[in-house]
């Protein structure tokens, strides 16, 4: 018994002694070799989200903290958003740079297993990266989402989940715009878009319409109906694929209704309708500019917007000379 206790005591004593000895040595060395660090680095580090996603272009949050203190822009972190920019600007004592437009990831493919079957039976490693190497992927469409969820795996914020149709679904609330999924996707199906752009072409296929029809039930067949439907010249068809210019798109959603294969998707609920307030002089400009004839009224009398017809494009708002139309 006492022998056992003795061996415990010597073991604890020996290791504890070493620990004390080395600890004291290191404490002395840390004084002697102390490096003066900018206290602001720790402060900046404290307010950064700590996700280490690398979206700012620096290696992790500590890299960005160093860079901010050395004078880098305070609006590089998409995760922190506008709130973070103000905090960083306060710490650094600079007038904050405006936070960039919030960008979110969009999956440009809606042809899941049900709509677009496989070309061959793929038995390999269940990742998109591997599937893409084997004969260019097992999907019958050579542009669409392979559905093995590489993007969902790489997302550091859990913003991507695969649905039962093997398509990634992006939670735009959680998406911080770090672009990890964009880089990971071997078929470049995922792209970034400004979060206030509500209409997207959900297809990447550059095949001719006939070929698309054969492989996928819901692909862009380059029929040009959306181009004709767009009152704002925001859609063009290039390489057999409709592309929306987000800077021109007004989210009116007319193309969404026209698209015969339903690849143009819009998050069109909850858009504000145009309302003409007091002060209308009845100039009829809004009436002429409205792409859906939702505005009625006689010359020189107040006009009215038919909320049923209004598509929230905002064209009248910008054109009104009296600025009395609000969304």
């Amino acid at each position: 018994m006492s022998e056992g206790i003795q061996s415990i005591v010597t073991a604890v004593g020996a290791l504890g002694g070493f620990g004390l000895l080395f600890g004291a040595g290191l404490a002395y060395a840390s004084k002697k070799f102390a490096v003066e660090t900018d206290p602001r680095v720790a402060e900046v580090m404290g307010v950064l989200p700590g996700a280490n996603c690398g979206a700012c272009g620096y290696p992790g949050c500590s890299g960005y903290a160093d860079a901010v203190v050395k004078g880098a822009a305070t609006n590089r972190c998409p995760v922190g958003g506008a709130g973070l920019v103000t905090k960083l600007s306060e710490i650094m004592g600079v007038t904050g740079d405006a936070p960039g437009q919030r960008m979110v990831a969009t999956v440009h493919c809606v042809g899941g297993e049900a709509e677009c079957g496989p070309r061959f039976v793929y038995d390999g490693v269940k990742t998109c990266q591997a599937a893409q190497v084997i004969g260019g992927g097992d999907k019958s469409c050579t542009f669409g989402c392979l559905g093995y969820g590489d993007c969902a795996g790489v997302c550091p914020f859990g913003a991507i989940v695969m649905d039962e149709n093997n398509l990634p679904v992006i939670d735009e609330e959680k998406c911080t715009g770090c672009e990890k999924c964009v880089v990971t996707c071997p078929r470049s199906v995922i792209a970034m878009r400004p979060d206030n752009s509500l209409v997207q072409v959900r297809c990447k296929s550059q095949d001719k319409g006939v070929a698309v029809r054969k492989t996928c039930k819901t692909g862009c067949i380059a029929c040009n109906l959306c181009v004709k439907a767009c009152p704002f010249d925001a859609i063009k068809v290039e390489n057999n694929l409709a592309i929306i210019d987000y800077s021109k798109c007004t989210n009116c959603g007319l193309c969404v209704a026209k698209c015969p294969t339903k690849v143009i998707k819009g998050q069109l609920e909850n858009r504000p309708k145009a309302v003409i307030q007091d002060g209308c002089i009845g100039c009829t400009i809004c009436k002429k500019v409205c792409p859906v004839d939702a505005i009625s009224g006689e010359l020189k009398s107040a006009h009215l917007v038919d909320a049923e017809k209004c598509v929230s494009c905002g064209a009248c708002v910008t054109k009104c000379p009296k600025k009395v139309i609000k969304m």
Binding site: S7, T10, A11, A14, L15, F18, G19, F22, G23, G25, L26, A29, S30, F33, V35
Partner: peptide, 27 residues
């Protein structure tokens, strides 16, 4: 003191301390 069984942990303690020291010097 017949503590051979503590070899690994004692050695790692030594190495860790040395590395800390080297890190400070290099920094």
């Amino acid at each position: 003191f017949d503590l051979m069984y503590l070899q690994t942990i004692a050695f790692i303690l030594v190495i860790a301390s040395l590395v800390q020291f080297v890190e400070m010097v290099i920094q």
